[in-house]
Amino acid sequence: MREQICKLVAEKLPELAGVVALRQTAVGTAPYLFREGDDLSQLVLEPRYPLPSVVSMLQKRYPEARFGVVARGCDARALVEMAKRNQIDPERLYLVGFTCSAEQAAECYCAAPAPDTAGWPQAMVVGVPVAGAPPNPLVAQYEEMSLAERRAFWQQQFAKCIKCYGCRNICPECFCEACALEDPLWVEAGMLAPPFPMFHLVRAMHMASRCVACRQCELVCPAHIPLTVLYDLMRRDIGELLGYEPGADIAAAPPLSLTLADGMVHGQDQLL
């Protein structure tokens, strides 16, 4: 897999300003812009890292340049949602996609471990796509939980939060310059754990129609809060209510900014 990717990157490099990928050296692994002539033996695929945010930063800094990126399924989904919100320009991006292993997909409860290149201007996927993994069992269990149990569960979880902003910082879909989580109007400063419901529910609402289930937030959280349980429930609701799957279709407009003429709402007949 890695060899195939390096071969493709080497082929594409002459026509690109560089390819964003992970580089491993003696001091560690970090995102890197590989340019023509660079040592591609240093290009690695692990660990999972939110490269889409790096792509966005580079494209904004170099508004004419065309870059490439080595991306797995979740990265491609993240790029799709970023494109819709003017955070990246797909016309100036070559997607070198690859598919995660079945084990990795299971670990992430990932439904789509390989990038979907449909509608993507320039893309190529290396490797045989593996099937999607089953969803997080906690999400299914949720239906069985009473309100009091849900409350007890999240009170215990949110009490652990040290408000490090790691979940926000790592998220490819968190890119606003002014963040509501830093605004004392919505999140009181100087209180730990952040008082319910502001911090966590504000973030959960902001992720509705954007969260692409990359699980980076959960991976990075030092308090091990299972954040994506909430976000997965929101993803499910977005599907049922608005018929939208974040990260799936680059041509579909974000539903919360549409009028009813451009996209219906389901299951709300009493209000229509």
């Binding site: 999240w154 009028t259 709402v265």
Partner: peptide
């Protein structure tokens, strides 16, 4: 504003569900 409440009807049911996910009736 013609379509202001179109946003409301999309956004608020999501919030309503989210509240119930953390145990608010």
């Amino acid at each position: 504003y013609i379509s202001g409440n179109h946003r409301t009807i999309k956004r608020m049911p999501l919030l309503h569900n989210l509240l119930s996910y953390v145990g608010i009736h």
